[in-house]
């Protein structure tokens, strides 16, 4: 399948309740498309890494700017180099892990 129109935005966020609602709320209230989310804690658990699958279009720059303004978002990077097909293979990964 073609995935050229998608890219991954990688976030490092503070790990506390409410962070995900800030991130996903931003996408809904600014009418940005959000195609997939992966999230897991890193290090000692005070921070998490979030991978957002988004459209790679002219709104991407604005998405990044708005994410950078969120208090609990510590780092934002656009990762064109990541294999975003993982979002469509998630089910296999999770079930294989069992």
């Amino acid at each position: 399948m073609s995935t050229t129109a998608r890219t991954v935005v990688e976030l490092i966020v503070n790990n506390h309740p409410g962070v995900m609602s800030h991130v996903t709320g931003l996408f809904s209230r600014r009418a940005f498309n959000l195609e997939g989310i992966l999230c897991g804690e890193i290090g000692n658990g005070t921070q998490s890494k979030v991978y957002l699958l988004v459209n790679n279009d002219d709104r991407l720059e604005q998405i990044v700017c708005q994410l950078e303004k969120l208090y609990d978002v510590k780092e934002v990077s656009v990762r064109d180099d990541y294999d975003n097909t993982i979002f469509t293979r998630l089910h296999d990964l999770v079930t294989n892990a069992q």
Binding site: P17, G18, S21, H22, G25, L26, R29, Y71
Partner: peptide, 14 residues
């Protein structure tokens, strides 16, 4: 209150 004020504050805390 925290959830309701997410989109209308610069930042919010519980």
């Amino acid at each position: 209150t925290y959830g309701m004020t997410v989109p209308i504050t610069k930042c919010n805390f519980l």
